[in-house]
Amino acid sequence: MRTIPAMRTLRTEPVLVYDGDCAFCTTSANLAERWVRPRCAMTPWQFADLGALGVTRRRAEYEALWVTPTGAVHGGAQAVARLLLSAGRGWAVLGALLTLPPLSWAAHGVYRLVANNRGRLPGGSPACALPPDRRPPA
């Protein structure tokens, strides 16, 4: 997984920020990198310079984030849509569909359902269900 070497420098590619303490989130990011092959850097929020990215810790704890090189931030299902769009091929079609109502509304609902229950999903762990400040160290 590519991490961002120095986020204070000019970024030329988008960044996907996810919860590195959550096994489900990490597994999802690894699968996306392997199968979808998005054109972006991927980093856990725990190792990111969130201030340089223009996002708060609270938001990074709440949802996956797609941060463009210009600083636009897309969260949750829209971050997933942007990831798919960046991959091209058939993935871009799916990503484009996820940006259009009513599919974007449905995608938001599904994302929240998954995010709120990630500790119960395959690849998840009981720690995923805990608030980040109460999770055991990795």
Rank of each mutant, 00 (worst) to 15 (best):
A23Y: 01
R112G: 02
T27E: 13
W66H: 00
V55C: 07
L31W: 14
W66D: 03
A23E: 05
W105I: 14
Y111V: 00
Q78T: 14
G90D: 06
A79C: 13
P102M: 03
S125I: 00
A87S: 12
L113A: 11
W35L: 15
R8P: 06
A79F: 08
V114G: 01
D21Q: 14
P131V: 11
A107S: 04
G123T: 05
E13T: 15
A41K: 06
R11P: 04
P131T: 09
V67D: 02
I4E: 02
E63A: 15
G124F: 05
L16D: 08
G123N: 01
S104G: 00
Y62A: 15
V17G: 03
G76T: 08
L31R: 15
D133Y: 08
T26E: 11
L130A: 09
G124D: 05
H108D: 07
R89F: 06
L50D: 02
Q78F: 10
D133C: 07
A48F: 05
V15Y: 06
G123A: 03
G75W: 06
V93A: 14
L113H: 04
V110C: 02
P126M: 10
L53V: 09
L65N: 03
P122S: 09
A138F: 14
R135Y: 02
R135T: 00
N30G: 13
C128W: 02
A6N: 14
W35D: 09
P101E: 04
P126I: 05
R82A: 12
Q46F: 07
A92F: 08
R34G: 11
R2V: 13
R58C: 08
P5C: 09
W35R: 12
R58D: 14
L83P: 03
L121D: 01
L65P: 00
G76M: 05
P102E: 03
S125T: 12
Y111R: 02
L100C: 14
V36S: 06
A115H: 06
G76H: 03
W105F: 12
D21T: 14
L98K: 01
P69G: 00
L94H: 01
R120H: 13
W66R: 00
V36I: 15
L121P: 04
E61F: 07
G51Q: 12
A79N: 11
A107N: 00
N117M: 05
R2P: 13
G75H: 03
A29S: 11
L83A: 10
A32Q: 13
Q46P: 09
A96N: 10
P14T: 11
L113E: 00
Y18I: 09
R112W: 10
A32I: 15
R37T: 13
R120S: 09
L85R: 11
T70Y: 08
R120L: 15
A48Q: 04
T26K: 10
R2K: 13
A79L: 12
R134H: 04
N116F: 05
T43N: 08
F24D: 00
